[in-house]
Design a protein around this nucleic acid. Structure first.
Lengths: 353, 353
DNA sequence: ATGATAAAGTTAAATGATTAAGTTTTCTAG
DNA sequence: CTAGAAAACTTAATCATTTAACTTTATCAT
């Protein structure tokens, strides 16, 4: 039986090698390169390490030496807390987690929204990054770029990197067309997500309507507008809301405002299912019949969308698949291809019954 | 203007020091210990580093040297993907993320369920751990224990560590009492979570009913049983279901089975709101009126609980607060106290209207 | 001016691993 | 039995930092 070192000092390759009477290199090889030593010695070393309570090389030291940590960073444009709350993000992260776990990679969550003190140098740890959401000149993102490590971007696109997107504009146009075609004398409201840089729920101005950006939301808005035009309808900025965060609270506020206007809209285009869910709740509260008096469409097809009553008509984007694909591109090193995932219009009960 | 090193080699303290003509120590101090050099030189160094594109010391090397990474590990008993899907876990993680972000700590998600190959030594990286859920002799958990790093456990208890729990038994008893007191000729079913070690939805056997473990679910079960006894009612194991994962799919299967029994239960005690939500869906499908013909109670008070129709009567446990508290204990170094968070019975519409 | 003291920088020894290159041991064939 | 090759193991350089201990420069009262 081996005598362990005093409990307080953590075991190292060196201290263990001293106890076992072999070189540090041999123990390292026992853990990492079985072909470099005899099977007999290897078994003996592994067993003795077990007894001592040494469970293998320190990750930090190994990472420093090998330049490889086994950690994948997910870079998120908003605060971390938000990503645990948002159902779409949850699905996306679920997909990532699935693939990383299968490949024995660890998952480090990094938020760009962290306050100015970005001194930690955390970007040097992960072996690669999945970058989610638009990153307009974010400092952490800039640093990540400079590491020259593998990157896959999702829901936005930058030259030189693998990316995963959907055709937001076409999908939005399709769902809007469907909704408008089933609405007589359409009076349209749009509940948009992050259309402008404000932290408050509000309507947008005429100016802001034409300030075309490249965000996911702006592309959806463009899709809606195309549908409205093709149907020879129109909408003013008075009927377009900006919702800063994809939460029930914000969405409820906007929904309540939107359904209190005169004339009251009979067709609400929502940029997320969370928003659409809030509209349904307010409609019930106000005794407005959906879909008879009011058509509602969402976006995303989150799990809850099929459980609302009436069940939500929406655009399905395979968010889990997005995550899976992002992670697998990264672990497989497929770092150039730009993928557009398909979407599908899901007809449930909030447009026609 | 400074000339940067060739692009391919990443910048280091050493390479930068060569360019700037000062020692590595001074640059290190410029970043970490402003008092160790003149403000003038420091400003100059920082500006020059900026120009060169050196954004501060490499985290891995710094961690190795200082023994401190700024990373907090969250050790999860199930697969990672599960924790992004489960609404209770989402809230818990939201709370953690909030506090860590405020304290400039990074969040590393670690799953115990990872297949046998646990060679990575990842437990050496984080500065501390939040351990969530029962860990019956899990190898990764054992290693974490051996690191002697700060640990806070949540939803289970081990000697020597700070822990956060709720009184599952009392809370379950309370909600069950309430439900039973409002049910005439009660015919009870229990939809339990992870009562036994099976991956399939099934009823439990008489034996398994009395196999008392120490899990959260078992304590809730005990609470239910106490209420049933105190009301001079009874239940057989035929009316107790085991649901392996807290998902709608599993729960729906169990709910469908439970509402197809003869005699049909008129009071269902659910160990989670997800399960209760599934029961409501099946009840609607079968045209069973809730609460008139069927009382349903859940557990957790997830956000969706207030949005179901009818709105769910349940036990509120402040899951976000749990996460916040766990993280703040860890960052503040309060590593001994064992906290029992309060719960509250939330009376909505699924027991009385 | 001068010696003492404080401030500003530098040197060099850790930190815990990996791995190329070198050394010793074992094996094989003639 | 021995040279040569292969296998088994060790040595020592390296990874990018931090920081105690040391050296140099500046400050200041006398």
């Amino acid at each position: 039986m081996l005598i362990a070192e005093p409990k307080n000092k953590p075991l190292t390759l060196k201290s263990v090698s001293k106890v076992l009477g072999v070189s540090t290199a041999t123990i390292s090889n026992a853990f990492n390169r079985p072909d470099q030593l005899s099977a007999k010695l290897r078994d003996k070393i592994l067993k003795q390490c077990q007894e001592l309570g040494y469970h293998g090389p320190n990750l930090t030291a190994r990472t420093l030496r090998k330049g490889e940590s086994g950690v994948i960073g997910v870079l998120l444009s908003d605060s971390l807390a938000y990503y645990f709350t948002d159902p779409v993000a949850n699905q996306f992260l679920t997909g990532i987690a699935e693939v990383l776990e299968k490949n024995h990679k660890q998952l480090l969550m990094l938020s760009c929204a962290e306050s100015t003190k970005q001194t930690s140098g955390i970007e040097t740890l992960p072996d690669g990054f999945i970058v989610y959401g638009t990153q307009d000149k974010n400092p952490l993102f800039e640093r990540v770029l400079q590491t020259n490590k593998p990157i896959v971007t999702v829901d936005f696109d930058t030259d030189n990197y693998a990316s995963i997107n959907i055709d937001n504009q076409a999908a939005a146009k399709e769902v809007a067309m469907y909704a408008l075609q089933h609405t007589q004398n359409a009076n349209i409201a749009i509940l948009g997500l992050r259309l402008i840089h404000s932290d408050r729920v509000c309507r947008i101005t005429e100016d802001e309507l034409y300030n075309e950006g490249e965000s996911v939301s702006r592309r959806r808005l463009t899709g809606y507008m195309q549908a409205i035009n093709e149907q020879d309808l129109n909408i003013t900025s008075d009927y377009i809301w900006h919702i800063p965060h994809n939460t029930y609270e914000d969405a409820t506020k906007a929904a309540r405002e939107a359904l209190s206007t005169h004339p009251q809209p009979n067709c609400v285009l929502c940029m997320s299912d969370v928003i659409a869910g809030a509209v349904l709740a307010i409609a019930r509260e106000k005794n407005i019949q959906v879909p008879q008096e009011l058509k509602v469409v969402g976006f995303d097809d989150i799990p809850e969308a099929s459980r609302t009553s009436p069940a939500l008509t929406t655009v399905c984007q395979k968010s889990i698949e997005k995550g899976r694909l992002a992670a697998s591109k990264l672990v497989k090193g497929e770092l150039t291809q730009k993928t557009i995932l398909p979407t599908a219009l899901i007809k449930r009960e909030t447009v026609e019954f």
